[in-house]
Simulated assay, not measured.
Amino acid sequence: MLYVAFLPIIDQEKNTELRPSHLEYINDLYKQGKVVMAGPFTDKKGGLVMYKADTPEEARQLAEADPVVVGGARTLELREWNPLELPLK
């Protein structure tokens, strides 16, 4: 299943400090097939990570281990996502 993590920034200074480790973490998970895509919002107030996980627990564990979450730079809202198969018939 796919899980979407919304990561609003709550501490810009911590976010700037932790961003390199956040990007490394996301990149490593991408290489393992656990991150499908990720990126910042254009308003620069946070970002989104899409995880591929077998269970909600695995997705939560991956999302909560992100350095920006652990370090208190961002909050986390994690939701399971069921994309439509387009085009619709």
Rank of each mutant, 00 (worst) to 15 (best):
M1H: 13
L2S: 04
L2A: 09
L2P: 05
Y3K: 05
Y3W: 08
A5N: 05
A5H: 07
F6K: 06
L7E: 06
L7D: 04
I9P: 05
I9A: 02
I9M: 04
I9T: 12
I10T: 15
I10Q: 10
D11K: 09
D11W: 14
E13L: 13
E13T: 15
N15M: 15
N15A: 13
T16Q: 13
E17W: 04
E17V: 09
L18Q: 10
L18W: 07
R19M: 11
P20H: 10
S21L: 10
H22G: 10
L23V: 13
L23N: 10
Y25H: 10
Y25A: 08
Y25M: 05
I26E: 09
N27R: 13
N27W: 13
N27F: 14
D28T: 15
D28C: 15
K31H: 09
K31I: 03
K31E: 15
Q32A: 14
Q32C: 11
Q32E: 13
Q32H: 10
Q32L: 15
K34S: 06
K34Q: 09
V35G: 14
V36W: 05
A38W: 05
A38H: 06
A38F: 04
G39E: 07
G39A: 09
D43F: 03
D43C: 05
K44H: 10
K45T: 15
K45N: 12
K45R: 15
G46I: 00
G46H: 03
G47L: 05
G47Y: 02
G47E: 05
L48E: 07
L48W: 11
M50E: 06
Y51C: 02
Y51D: 07
K52Q: 14
A53Y: 07
A53N: 00
D54I: 14
T55H: 02
T55M: 01
P56N: 02
P56C: 00
E57R: 06
E57F: 03
E58P: 14
E58D: 08
R60I: 04
R60H: 07
L62E: 00
L62K: 03
L62R: 01
A63E: 06
A63P: 08
E64T: 11
E64S: 09
A65V: 08
A65R: 08
A65Q: 09
D66R: 09
P67S: 00
P67D: 03
V68F: 03
V69S: 02
G72M: 00
G72N: 01
A73W: 00
T75M: 09
L76M: 00
L76E: 06
L76W: 02
E77V: 08
R79F: 01
R79A: 09
R79L: 08
W81Y: 15
N82Y: 11
N82I: 10
P83H: 04
P83K: 01
L84K: 07
E85S: 12
E85Y: 05
E85I: 14
P87F: 02
P87K: 01
L88G: 11
K89F: 06
